[in-house]
Design a protein around this nucleic acid. Structure first.
Lengths: 341, 341
DNA sequence: GATTGGCACTCGTCCCGGGGGAGTGCTACC
DNA sequence: GGTAGCACTCCCCCGGGACGAGTGCCAATC
């Protein structure tokens, strides 16, 4: 019983199951794939694969279905990434190029992935933590309110309004703005607290409350992990074909997707993978609602190898892994290029 | 055959059908409602109601189900708005009060409505067109890029980056900023073009390109209707109970909801209604994907009677109309109060 | 030892037919 | 106009049987 053939069988099972949505039996396998052996032999292989936990049968007299573990082996060892065709690449590039501003880029990217993969697309806004600060703007609003605007090198703009205990002094605000920009411009947000700590010294004690408040707001903004934003598209794809792919209903999946926290945790975990494309299959997502889904993501916005955020696609376990992986990776690459330009 | 009783019967049918999800027959009706007549009489009334198109039967020997027209009559004439209880109001107010900034307010509002109505919630960002401008900020970014930030009285912030043909002159930028704020502050965006038109004259011909570019961007931003944004929550509610409420699947509904254009059209149509709460039932939505849904919205952010944007809830035809209407209206009122404060 | 053909067995799915029941429309009557 | 009775329609549920796909195992073969 050759090890190689057993893997071939697993691959064939995954491919057929993905294509047909139905448990695949030994006969069908030999008919659709040139395996060169008889169904009986395949049955033995299948028994071994089941023993090892790569496949399972829904009920006694049915064909086999890949398990999470089976899909995992498939993506790790059995799949050859099929690169996108030239026209496809060109279309992706052209579509993204047309974007006007950051919001537009993100919006187009998420729609594009939904379209390409026919699944739910996810795009994370460029992370504040890993971006560099381009400019800080202070705008007095009335006499007691100050609007603090942070602009990052990825084009992201964050603003906070600040209510002050005392009336504003325009001159001091001007000085503060100037100094802030000297200390802050070009720095990563994660390096800022150190730079800002010294700032208060430069002003007199009378202005201390203002300076501290502003510095506080800036730090708070960048510390606020919850400010990470994720955008979705293509949720309707979940319901395709009467939601056959999800045992219960798609309700739990939608719930999970609405929980930004869940997605953000997954995205940050996947950022650790150091692979160009990260994959989470079924229970690997560690989330109840996503047990019957797989999540494929890729980082974008590289700068010295560290990506700024991620894009991805979520679909049923039985999805086109190679296709989704290449689509996600392609979009991530174009995004990187566009944000750099 | 009294007209009044016929309407009572219709109301009873709607209420029962909403409660049970099942076609309601004449016997069940007399048992659950004190109508004071026999089933046979009800049958006659039902025949008349069916004749007029208010109810229909799914198949020959089944009970009756309200039609779109039936629901419409129900909400127009048969429903008494049940106000929210005091604790409910208090909870709504408290929850919304905690919000930090506009994004936060919108986010909380949309979650709140989803929670209260157990349906899909929709919140429209305060419209640019109908807001007043509070402040314009010009931020030089590098030597050839200018960031234009518009801040409205509803707290909304819009920014655009501008690429210039010539290097920036800080002094001119400062003058332009000052003049812009004089001309613009406190005005409705829709009144701005007039005010801005004269602006160019105040500067020398050398600065004309800059001034024109900035004015152009401001006008473009406010003209861009597509910048209207809508936020959703609670889409998972659509799948409740195995999506029994939607004949096909919920796919088309999700698709429609993702089309911001569709929602924006509906929202703007409903703004014309001049009622505190607007309702669109089934085909009244004029959209394929929403044939089996109803949409209830209410304006918020009143200022002299004209609302700035809308909040709403979308659910199946057989939804709790009075409850949804009062929940939506309550949230709209609190939003208005908070944005004014 | 791996492979193969044969065969009995399991079990889910489909289809069919009949009983039960809810609800209706009609008609005759008050 | 309202009511009671009645015949009729038609959906839903349920049990049983035929069918068929697929398996596991065993003995035979290369």
């Amino acid at each position: 019983m050759s090890e190689d053939r057993r893997l071939d069988v697993l691959r064939a099972i995954v491919e057929d199951y993905v294509a047909t949505r139905e448990p695949v039996g030994s006969r069908a396998l030999v008919e659709r794939h040139a395996l060169g052996v008889s169904p009986a032999t395949i049955r033995n292989d299948m028994a071994a694969l089941e023993e090892s936990g790569y496949i399972a049968q829904p009920h006694t007299s049915a064909g086999r279905v890949p398990t999470d573990k089976g899909y995992r082996l498939f993506v790790d060892r059995l799949t050859t990434v099929k690169p996108m065709s030239v026209p496809e690449r060109r279309a992706i590039g052209a579509f993204l190029e047309e974007a006007q501003d950051l919001d537009d880029v993100v919006d187009r990217a998420v729609r594009l992935i939904a379209q390409l993969t026919q699944q739910v697309a996810v795009v994370q806004y460029p992370s504040l933590r890993r971006s560099a600060l381009r400019h800080v703007e202070l705008v007095p609003v009335g006499v007691r309110h100050l609007l603090v605007v942070l602009i990052t090198d990825t084009g992201r703009v964050e603003q906070r309004t600040l209510e002050l205990g005392a009336d504003l002094d325009e001159v001091v605000v001007g000085q503060l703005r100037a100094r802030l920009n000297v200390s802050a411009a070009g720095r990563r947000l994660s390096e800022l607290p150190v730079a800002l700590a010294e700032l208060a010294d430069a002003f007199g004690p009378a202005d201390a409350p203002l300076v501290e408040a502003v510095v506080g707001v800036v730090e708070e903004t960048l510390a606020q992990e919850s400010e990470e934003r994720v955008v979705l598209a293509g949720t309707a794809h979940l319901a395709r074909g009467g939601a056959v792919d999800f045992a219960g209903s798609i309700g739990p999946v939608l719930e999970a997707l609405e929980e930004q926290v869940v997605l953000l945790r997954l995205l940050s975990e996947m950022a650790e993978d150091n692979a160009s494309v990260a994959v989470r299959i079924g229970r690997e997502t560690q989330h109840e609602g996503l047990l019957e889904t797989s999540f494929i993501t890729s980082g974008y916005g590289d700068e010295n190898g560290t990506s700024v955020a991620r894009v991805g696609s979520i679909g049923p376990l039985r999805m086109d892994y190679p296709g989704t992986m290449s689509a996600v990776r392609a979009v991530a690459r174009y995004l990187t290029r566009i944000l750099a330009g």
